[in-house]
Write a protein that binds this DNA or RNA. Structure first.
Length: 576
DNA sequence: GCCGTTTTCGGCCCGACTGTTTTCAGTCG
């Protein structure tokens, strides 16, 4: 089940959206949004919390605590229900379109009766937006493009949604009597950045009980197909899930087969054919005799093909077979290799947890060092000042003295302005242990300008990491336009790391660019960019991207011991 | 609606960018 926190947060967010459409008080709206973020990032499940403790959650006061209690008792919030009768769900959905906010959504509904994304697309097609006040040709084109983006994204889910769902399913099915093994396969096991549907595999000789347990899961909304070998369902999370049941002795072959990718499987089957073998989801068979040769484990299946086991994240037919044959597969970086995290926020800016709470979470991850990198002043809405930053540094010094198990680094996330300059002067920047620098504005600059901007940021002696470099937001905003090879050469030359930001809607750099950058000698930092305690668990998604980019521990600077990392930063500053 | 080393009222997430405008509204980070 989704946590009660997530559902309560969704309701508060809906309340905020509906109020912004109907023109409610802006501060009240922000208070709901803030509370929603805080709830979602809160580690304790509100369903298990006594009502008296709800108000201990930051940004949750008397009124919002009541609403959460309302939700826990009735499954909904009264004010939300009331507003729903006035504003159709489709009107709120309009605000999902990038570039279209609450005011324009309401105008479309009031003026021409548009109450869903489909109706809006239709209205544009019929030219019904022409002459509507505030909707010129550019706006119309932006909305049209926004709908396209939204529809592309709608077909696939972010990896964290799919991973949570898959983990829940596997946990339940693994406990069904007779099930010997259970795991997810498919694009999720390969850690693709978005997931079309979830593939779950179970090994048992008695399929019936596991199929029944599967279709009885609370979030299953529709059974599309149900058989002994395969059952497909739709879920309330927007994802389809396929469950395949195989006999235990076929586990390895089935896991290999259903993990894919299709292109990878075509290659492995070709190798089998050339050796007089046949590879299917049931095993490797001798073509002539029909005898089963191997099927129990993936390792055996690959071994019979003359290959070492290939990590799922590499199975894209992107050179992994050749590398495997040559004995040149990389030793991929793992979550356990990471000693530090170089990008995180606290409630000093837009995080929802305190410095002390975030540090405890970092200790819980077993990290040796942890950078707190709150936003710098040029991102005006965060209201950072030099004084606040220095005060935080003092708090970190004091906390470090009490925290022998972890070294807290004082950092900041700088803003790369339109010309490639960042906040503060050299003297102030020199006071930080680590500086991440990111683009937060002027996303539409032309390619040459954007490239120069990044190169200049790399050339800044105090910029150690370029944060979420492409600034894409999956389903909302495409990547900025830059000559990435030029940027990567500058990063390699100056000793500037490229970040892999672990947020499921960022995953930035994307894996294909990671691989290109690695070839040009770039180093990477795999960071959570955590804004809440829960965000720490996103680390596995960023590591997935690093693996898909063929990175080894040595490529990733936050696997290094702290003294090596400090030397790397110092070398950059001295070189400049 | 929340919050407090400027406190229990009066602030709070400001300013750039875009597109539509003739001086500004809407959106976004």
């Amino acid at each position: 089940m989704a946590r009660a926190n997530d559902e309560a947060a969704a309701l508060l967010r809906e309340l905020a959206d509906l109020l912004s459409i109907t023109g409610g008080d802006a501060f009240k709206i922000r208070a709901y949004e803030k509370a929603a973020r805080s709830l979602q990032g809160h580690p304790d499940d509100v369903a298990d919390l006594p009502p008296s403790r709800l108000r201990e959650i930051p940004s949750v006061g008397e009124a919002i605590a009541k609403k959460v209690e309302d939700y826990l008792a009735t499954g909904t919030i009264r004010q939300v229900e009331e507003l729903r009768t006035r504003i159709p769900a489709g009107v709120r959905a309009l605000t999902e379109i990038p570039g279209l906010g609450p005011k324009k959504a309401l105008a479309l509904y009031d003026e021409i009766g548009v109450a869903s994304v489909d109706e809006l697309a239709d209205a544009i097609g019929r030219g019904r937006l022409r002459g509507l006040k505030g909707f010129g040709p550019k706006t119309e084109e932006n909305i049209r493009h926004g709908i396209e983006l939204l529809r592309q994204a709608g077909e696939r889910s972010l990896v964290d949604v799919a991973a949570d769902l898959a983990d829940e399913i596997v946990a339940v099915l693994a406990e069904v009597p007779g099930v010997e093994r259970c795991a997810f396969a498919g694009s999720l096991r390969r850690m693709r950045e978005t997931i079309g549907d979830v593939d779950v595999l179970a090994a048992t000789d008695d399929p019936r009980p596991v199929m029944e347990a599967f279709t009885a899961l609370p979030f299953v909304t529709e059974v599309i197909a149900g058989g002994d070998k395969k059952t497909s369902v739709r879920t309330s999370r927007g994802l389809q899930v396929d469950l395949r049941v195989v006999p235990p002795e076929a586990w390895g072959a089935a896991l290999q087969y259903f993990t894919g990718s299709q292109a990878h499987n075509v290659r492995t089957r070709e190798i089998a054919v050339r050796a007089g073998l046949r590879l299917s989801e049931y095993g490797i068979f001798d073509v002539e005799s029909g005898a089963l040769i191997a099927s129990e484990t993936e390792e055996e299946v690959y071994a019979r093909l003359g290959l070492p086991w290939i990590h799922p994240t590499l199975r894209e037919d992107a050179g992994e077979i050749q590398a495997a044959l040559a004995g040149e597969l990389p030793r991929l970086v793992t979550v356990d290799d990471l000693r530090g995290d170089l990008h995180s926020h606290t409630d000093l800016t837009d995080g929802t947890a305190t410095l002390e709470e975030m540090v405890r979470a970092a200790i819980g991850r077993g990290l040796e060092y942890y950078a707190v990198t709150d936003h710098a002043p040029n991102l005006v809405m965060q209201r950072m000042t030099s004084e606040k930053m220095l005060a935080q540094r003092e708090r970190i010094r004091a906390l470090n003295a009490r925290t022998p198990e972890l070294e807290i680094l004082h950092g900041t996330e700088l803003n790369i302005d339109g010309d490639g300059n960042v906040d503060w002067d050299a003297e102030f920047l020199a006071g930080f242990d680590v500086c991440v620098a990111s683009v937060h504005s002027q996303f539409r600059q032309d390619k040459d300008t954007m490239t120069r901007r990044f190169v200049r940021a790399c050339e800044n002696p105090y910029v150690h990491v370029i944060g979420h470099p492409t600034t894409r937001s999956l389903g909302r905003r495409g990547p900025v336009d830059a000559d990435w090879d030029e940027v990567f050469r500058a990063a390699a030359r100056t000793g500037t790391a490229m970040e892999i930001d672990c947020f499921p809607d960022r995953l930035d750099l994307p894996a294909d660019l990671v691989r290109r950058a690695k070839r040009l000698g770039v180093r990477f930092s795999v960071d959570t960019d955590a804004h809440s305690l829960r965000d720490h668990r996103n680390i596995r998604f960023g590591v997935g991207v690093a693996q898909r980019g063929w990175l080894t521990p040595d490529d990733v600077i936050n696997t290094w011991p702290l003294d090596r990392l400090r030397a790397f930063f110092a070398a950059k500053t001295e070189r400049a």
